[in-house]
Design a protein around this nucleic acid. Structure first.
Lengths: 162, 162
DNA sequence: TCATTATGGATCTTCAATGTCCACAATATA
DNA sequence: TATATTGTGGACATTGAAGATCCATAATGA
């Protein structure tokens, strides 16, 4: 279980766009050179980011990419969900198994008590809780917060005041 | 990014072992029937769990598997790490890129200030934080806690008192 | 019109996840 | 001791997603 390289590329690409906000358009050439990835592959990733409204793209001469909203409004979760997809981190593969029937006997699981909720599998319920934890953290961290990290470190005065 | 089916199988298998602690050995046949998975494949998974000391295995007639320690001392994290491996959730693939050099200019990153720490990539630092969050949650949930969920739900008196 | 730049389709390779089969070792029991 | 049972580990097959490349096409500015 690992994040894909594409997620790596996407995050670093957005970092570069956020870092160069003065200039309006950054071409795929500059991005691919900066990250050390092929233009072909990186352009697929940028297209995904565009389809999901993370970046804007302009074709033609002097075209390129730019962030479609301020860097502090692009969270890690946003980016990860675009690239990795939005399926659950964990899905129970056998809800009809003997296991589920036997646990249902001495608990809730099947009947709609208050306990069961949406997912009947108890393992899945725990894993969904884990996923929520993860998402919360990833939502609190943005492209801007990484840019801030790079700056803030040189002069460490105001440690935590955003 | 998803947990593998093997992790699903492993967790449910351990649940079954924990649930049937009265009997000492549960064979692969019973496990595979309960979970609805082939014996061949499930036995690979059980072997892994044995190699990592999660279960004990006895070959021969009346042999089978049992938990090697109490169910409340087998955490979700334990199981997941055995099956999924222990690599980081995220690894930055290009520490020598232009990106890293350019961010280094106006920050820390390369020089060993207090900020940099072990990993030089700022994206990786954020992701490592996310991983820690996840791990903490997964460490707080055990095989026993899922068994408890099944029981506790039928009579909901003491909601949170473990 | 032309050079530039992004887009999307097609295709290829690689590799891990999933799954099966089989020979072998260990064990209990008759 | 012989035999049936049960876990182990190696070999192998299949599948699908990730990673990557190439090219025709569309859009844009000069």
């Amino acid at each position: 279980m690992q994040f894909s390289k594409s997620t790596d590329y996407a995050l670093h690409a957005l970092l570069h766009l956020g870092h160069s906000e003065r200039r309006s358009n950054i071409g795929i050439k500059e991005l691919s050179t900066t990250l050390g990835v092929s233009e072909s592959y990186l352009s697929k990733i940028m297209s995904k980011l565009r389809q999901d409204g993370i970046v804007r793209a302009v074709p033609g001469v002097n075209g390129g990419y730019e962030l479609s909203r301020p860097a502090d409004q692009i969270t890690f979760l946003d980016v990860i969900q675009v690239i990795e997809g939005r399926q659950q981190l964990f899905e129970c593969s056998n809800t009809n198994s003997q296991q589920h029937r036997s646990l249902a006997e001495e608990g809730v699981v099947q009947q709609d008590h208050e306990c069961s909720g949406k997912s009947e599998c108890l393992v899945e319920q725990v894993m969904n809780g884990a996923e929520q934890q993860l998402h919360q953290y990833l939502q609190e961290h943005t492209i801007q917060s990484v840019l801030d990290m790079a700056f803030k470190c040189s002069n460490h005065e105001a440690n935590k005041k955003e």
